[in-house]
Nucleic acid binder design. Structure first.
Lengths: 231, 231, 231, 231
DNA sequence: TATGAATGAGTGTTCATTCAT
DNA sequence: TATGAATGAACACTCATTCAT
């Protein structure tokens, strides 16, 4: 397995890439970007081969290097897309009040998050698992994911006794939980229906993290089948 | 990875591995196993090079193949170790009652779990992320991790309205949460002190998952610094 | 020979070989095929190194694997060429009557056979000596060589008392004899001139195998130098 | 495949081999020699691994080098055994008169030859196919086989018009024929019964090569099933 | 803009041989 | 005399990248 010869500090090599792309070029570039997603998803970043991407995209081997300096550059482009969407995602989470409308808002956001994860899972995992050698790229990941964490943090109801530290940790726990569920949902079949899972997760997370103060449950009238009763 | 790329009916390869090992051989095998952990941790399974392992172990390249048929076989051995410890880990979690002693028990178990994760993180991640091509190996992972999830499940207080399905999902959430925190704790510096993190996580998880029924908090007298107040 | 030593269910290797070749590619492929002949002839199949083949062909190491999946695949390609020519060879042997024209026909065929052997000796020997592990390949050998044997068999004059079994055995003897002489002729210097050897062999074989019925020799008028008198 | 690092012109390296062997050592040496035969037969000289020999012999890896300087040395020892038996074999062929007793004598000798070939086939083939790099070893082969050819030659009835050259060629043909049949008989199943094959071959060869002068066959009374009628 | 061809450093694996016990 | 352990050069094969057309 030839080692990744192109590191973060690349010697500037003759870059044949066009700066401005005509429609056809843009289309090819998109095809490659599209093709990269399933390939990376299936094999992971390290094991993904340019050859696979190229075959899926239906272009020749050489064409790849017309649009990307190297494998990492492709990943960088994908990461930039991901970062953009992550910013949008962070912005999409408004206040999550304690009531039923808060839970609904949370559920909607989770739906968006899962869709986001379904597309960018590889990149996200490469970020969350330190697989990225490139400094700038890693920073981009931290920033992007941090933004989402920030959004969650500011949405979290800070209990009266919660220190910033505690809120931070709760936000981290929440991100971890949501990310991991997204991973499980998208990668392997958990045996749970998507709808049900999201509904339950929303309930669960809303109660556990966003409810202003837990009420003593007395007369539950919800269908017990479809939801997780928060303990 | 030069894969027995070869053909239909090749001459059988001989497997020179020792069956019974003397102390010296056993020591070398252990050295290799030990050496593999940091290498795999640093590079991941696919990118880990046998060369690195043997360099860390301080043995020659050929020696490796005296003890393992190939890279995957080394991984298999590591996985078996991991599976054994996972079984022990699952057995180590007794009942987690609702009170303070329950939280203490949970914290102790988390300490053990984190130590376990620190050693076997690579294997666990390879399992949880489907990086393992080998069927049996994957099954071993599912089994092992499932055992831990089972232990958690049976320790979970099943609320009056909780269906088995819900308990299952809660167990999954719990495993995901704990595993992810272990990952974060062991791989990158979260900026949290281990002790504090574990203490907080124990509190957090205990309240969220194991408390029989949440009481309306009124006058919290705990040091707010050291704990996360469960919402 | 790094054999797909690997394990149960490996990631499928991709086979980057070109399907349709342009003239340049076709030329390179031919170069490799050509180069393989002397290399295999000199070292035999097992000891032949890909490195030698590419050095002789004057291409890089990687190029080899652009056209052949592995060493065995190269051999397979060579074998297919050989099989094709063997079929032609079998077809080239018409009836071999008892007279002088029969002997001449036989001699011509021997010339062709020897040329055939000179090119495909390695493959043929690998076949006749069971060096081929691949089932299909071995079958191809049996078929090809069998075809030649069949041609000889049907050309053999079946004496009045010859059972099919006997004819079959005689054909086998004939093939063995001719093959072995071809081997001796092409591989080491027997000290005989090619022309003379072939002429003698033709005479010898014709008399021994194809003459309708041996006549009592009385007054031989042939030049004793150039021929073997059949006993 | 590590190349054969020990050539014909070996640098004299510390030879730990005992000069005089005690009974136990002699026994081990014999075990190795015995074990080498099937291993070489199955894999051929180049592909035979010391490891296989050692496993079959049931001794340790290091023990091998107590008795043989290297793989080639083992082969040399085997070759010397073969050469000795070849000499005996050559001596065993007395005159082969034209009559029935001549044919019987020939058959007996063929039986011995086939047994000889069954044991030493690998060595013989390595000789006849120039697989031996060592000069002296190759010469030993030529000598040994030549001795057998000489025996056949001197046994051949030299027809009135046969020049020495012709006799030589006939002897070569005879050796080639017999050797190849021995190979076919011992290595793969021809579908012929051994007994029948030898009987037929004896008849065939005797008529073709040793009969003083062929008589015009008129009233054959032989069972046509069991024999090949010489053409 | 696109392509098929070529490259070669890198990596996994084998196996003859040596060595310490 | 015997052994298990260790070695490392040699070899098969991969794949990111460059290039000529």
């Amino acid at each position: 397995m030839p080692v990744n010869r192109s590191s973060s500090t690349n010697t500037p090599r003759p870059d044949r890439r066009r700066v401005r792309l005509r429609p056809q070029g843009e289309a090819t570039r998109s095809k490659l970007l599209e093709a990269a997603v399933p390939v990376l998803a299936r094999r992971g970043y390290h094991a993904a081969r340019v050859d696979d991407v190229v075959r899926v995209a239906g272009v020749s081997h050489g064409t790849f290097y017309l649009y990307f300096a190297n494998k990492e550059d492709l990943f960088r482009a994908l990461a930039r897309q991901c970062a953009d969407e992550a910013a949008a995602l962070a912005g999409a989470l408004g206040p999550v009040p304690a009531g039923a409308e808060g839970q609904a808002a949370l559920r909607e956001w989770l739906v968006v998050f899962f869709a986001f994860y379904r597309r960018h899972g590889v990149v996200i995992r490469a970020w969350t698992e330190n697989q990225v050698a490139d400094r700038d790229l890693a920073r981009l990941g931290v920033t992007s994911f941090g933004r989402v964490a920030d959004a969650l943090r500011s949405a979290l109801t800070e209990g009266p006794h919660a220190t910033p530290r505690q809120v931070e940790l709760r936000a981290a726990a929440l991100v971890a939980l949501v990310e991991r569920f997204a991973y499980l949902l998208t990668s392997r079949d958990l045996g749970f229906d998507d709808e049900v899972l999201i509904e339950n997760l929303a309930t669960f997370v809303h109660r556990g993290f966003f409810a202003a103060a837990p009420q003593r449950r007395r007369h539950s009238t919800r269908r017990p089948e479809a939801n997780i009763s928060c303990p």
